[in-house]
Design a binder for these strands. Structure first.
Lengths: 246, 246
DNA sequence: CGCCACTTTGAGTAGTGTCAATGCTGGTGG
DNA sequence: CCACCAGCATTGACACTACTCAAAGTGGCG
């Protein structure tokens, strides 16, 4: 299909769904502007206040976005997972307003702010994809606001746990828990002690089962109820979800 | 400049800055798709779950966006002011995820979801404007998350008060307070009693002065400090701000 | 083995919510 | 015109959630 040497399907920016309707030559041109990069866990991709040089597309791994108050209090704004975009500041040339730190080993493709703007201007259909991605992010962010503002500690923890599991798939499978108690607390506006106590309580009630670095839901229905949903409902808290395939 | 009969500068969607580089004919075509409408205070523009028929551009007035939990708890997600867009769901044809209610008399222009998508496809430069608008909204939303998660009741109230004043302009001018104590509480994740007590305390300390339906900051510096900023900093909480002029 | 980071658990407390009573204001209808 | 009522704001007393500070347990790693 492609007539140049760049790597097909090298990253999410490279997948056809991000630029439908382009000629192979256009696709190759865009691919030529992309930079692949790998980060280790705990690496910082950029810091609050850095000039926004790049838009990142996350190919694999997870990244946390952190915002701080002068006195050191920290809040995790968002978990970025594979398939999502990172660094929207590249669209409008403002400095990053948060720090991005890898939770796992992370593979990204990035494109410089300058190249990005050129690509957008020349490929209108890509803008529409970007709009849809931003809207998804806004949806998630607003649901997080609701939950931060309205929910009690156990409701928050239950919502977070549910959000860590894929929306479609076995809700009772054991998954790796990449977040520490402190990080969970920083997502929820709680302290690590409170999170620990709530998790211990869920464990005692046999609603979840925690191993070291792993997490399993044994009674999804009770957890939904605890999260403040009706039993048959679905989680709304940070519904981590990739860009839907075209 | 324009060669058709549609009204120049009828609304923000109509202003040149939203579609730079278009011919007058294109501009007129777009204007023909817009519907002007007025709502009274307390009118509901749409409800949570309604199909997203329109994108709204707010010409004047203020609108609150409300999200609810099944048990009736409510959270105000955002205050929409003149110059902002409302109803981003029109971009991706999903139902509205919140209820929009006018706080004042409101003038809007709206465009149907179908027409919008056509316009975007035919006018790429408009997509870029939309992206920038969405990014602004995301910035505001993430700062709200930080404040909801990290701040104490007095810090939250101080931040909200500061955000109600225009970023550029006299910070000590008396402005109308459109929000009830309950609504302030619903923005901040507090109860109306707590908001009332904090406001009364600020009043006693002569940091603010409240009349019925009005609000004045008498000591901006102390309020900044109380909000958790360094004295010389600027407010980050819901920085209500119109789309910057081209 | 010993150190360090992370987690758990406990005791006490501060901050915020809950419930209730009162006052104030504006609107409505007699 | 006034009496009444409904909604909003204020204030108090009390309860309870979640925070703070502290200590001890756990597991990984040099």
């Amino acid at each position: 299909m492609s007539t140049c040497y760049c790597e097909i399907d090298a990253c999410v920016l490279c997948e056809a769904r991000l630029y439908p309707g382009l000629t192979p030559e256009q696709v190759c041109h865009i691919r030529g502007l992309l930079i692949r990069q790998t980060y280790d866990a705990h690496d910082v991709l950029f810091r609050d206040g850095d000039p926004a040089g790049y838009l990142f597309a996350v190919r694999s791994g997870q990244i946390k976005l952190i915002s701080s108050l002068p006195d050191g209090r920290q809040q995790i704004l968002h978990l970025v997972v594979a398939g999502q975009l990172l660094g929207r500041e590249a669209f409008n040339n403002r400095p990053y307003a948060y720090t991005a730190e890898a939770l796992t080993e992370v593979n990204v493709c990035k494109i410089s702010s300058r190249d990005l703007q050129q690509v957008l201007e020349q490929n209108p259909s890509m803008s529409i994809r970007v709009i849809q991605t931003l809207i998804q992010e806004l949806d998630q962010t607003e649901m997080l606001i609701r939950d931060l503002g309205l929910k009690t500690a156990p409701e928050k923890v239950a919502s977070l746990i549910l959000s860590l599991f894929p929306a479609r798939g076995d809700q009772t499978a054991e998954i790796p828990l990449l977040l520490s108690r402190r990080e969970m607390a920083e997502m929820l506006g709680l302290t690590e002690e409170t999170v620990s106590r709530v998790m211990a309580e869920f464990n005692r009630k046999k609603i979840i089962r925690t191993g070291k670095g792993t997490l399993q839901i044994t009674q999804p229905q009770r957890l939904y109820t605890l999260a403040g949903f009706e039993p048959a409902s679905s989680p709304t808290f940070i519904p981590v979800r990739a860009i839907p395939a075209h």
